[in-house]
């Protein structure tokens, strides 16, 4: 089972930041305060949705066919995602 990266602090629920990065080759570690990229702050499902969207060249029709969902279902999911991204952006500003 793939480990899921936690996005929020389990104690105060604030968005987590990256403090350590590690090279898997030479085990060099870099410490600092790095905010999560916007896309990384989305859930796995939301990230997969964006990947599908790009792979379908932004065609919701093709995406709907590929996911086995109707066009309005896919479009509504995209609208929800847009809302979430806007809210995250506002939070960061």
């Amino acid at each position: 089972m793939e480990n899921r990266m936690p996005l929020n602090c389990p104690s105060c629920d604030k968005t987590l930041e990256v403090s350590t990065l590690k090279c898997p080759g030479c085990e060099t570690t870099v410490n600092g305060n790095f905010p999560l990229p916007l896309l990384a702050s989305l859930t796995n499902d939301e990230q997969s949705f964006i990947v599908e969207f790009v792979k379908s060249s932004g065609s919701l029709k093709e995406m709907a066919r590929h996911l086995g969902l109707s066009y309005p279902s896919v479009r509504n999911r995209l609208d929800e995602l847009i809302e979430k991204i806007k809210a995250t952006e506002n939070q960061r500003q």
């Binding site: 086995g68 969902l69 109707s70 066009y71 309005p72 279902s73």
Partner: peptide, 10 residues
């Protein structure tokens, strides 16, 4: 059922 079927097919 419209989660799966809409548009021209429906």
């Amino acid at each position: 059922p419209f989660k799966y079927i809409a548009g021209e097919r429906a």
